[in-house]
């Protein structure tokens, strides 16, 4: 699987801010995001509107204030698990607040008061950290799927050993070659193969007995 190419230019990104609207017009967070080419939107405060939001992992990042009372819909955010990167705004550095941000999916943090110089680092780590986690989760799911396919692989090896009079290594090689020709993963190929066979064709004898017969 190829290495993840990291995002290093955040121009065109949309940051959705889940925090109280600042009093000052010269808000360093908004100012710093604009400097990086990131557009800013203030998130809706109503829970219903949150569910209606159209979010896209390639375009959006959520910046969420984790301090008590700062983001009323934080619990809902945790429940919905938005499919986009989340960066936490931290004022109170306590385990309970940090935990909530973690549960909301934060992969980077910004200390309050926000210093615009820290923004690029937070976006870089938060967004690329999120993407790396997505990739890792996809890889784990794929491995899990293949692990589940191991039973079909064992059955197919036994079938080929019996059908062609081969030892287990040679039977495996045969299946691997056939899977490559079919452009399928070996687990998928074996699963397909076993699905096409009538039930009575399943191996009648244990593999080690078969191996001894060949030995």
């Amino acid at each position: 699987m190829s290495r993840l190419r990291l995002i290093q230019n955040f121009s065109g990104l949309r940051a959705m801010l889940f925090r109280p609207t600042p009093d000052s017009a010269s808000d360093p967070l908004q100012h710093g995001l604009a400097r990086l080419g990131v557009t800013v939107e203030h998130a809706p405060e109503q829970p219903d509107a949150l569910a209606e939001l159209s979010l896209c992992a390639d375009r959006d990042v959520l910046i969420v204030d984790g301090d008590p009372g700062a983001c009323a819909i934080l619990p809902l955010l945790i429940e919905l698990k938005p499919p986009v990167p989340v960066i936490g705004l931290i004022g109170m550095e306590t385990p309970s607040r940090l935990r909530l941000l973690m549960e909301a999916g934060a992969t980077a943090m910004l200390r309050k008061p926000v210093q615009s110089g820290a923004l690029y680092t937070s976006l870089y780590l938060g967004i690329n950290g999120y993407r790396q986690r997505q990739l890792a989760e996809a890889r784990i799911a794929e491995h899990e799927r293949r692990r589940r396919g191991r039973r079909g692989l064992v059955k197919a090896i036994l079938h080929v050993m019996q059908r062609d009079g081969l030892d287990d290594d040679t039977a495996f090689e045969t299946l691997r070659r056939d899977a490559m020709r079919a452009r399928l993963g070996i687990e998928d190929y074996c699963d397909n193969l076993m699905q096409t066979l009538p039930r009575q064709c399943a191996p009648a004898r244990a593999p080690f007995k078969q191996e001894r017969d060949h030995g």
Partner: peptide, 14 residues
């Protein structure tokens, strides 16, 4: 200074 208008979004493939 952040090359937001001068460089591609992704780092190059290696």
């Amino acid at each position: 200074p952040y090359l937001v208008r001068s460089m591609p979004k992704l780092e190059p493939a290696q």
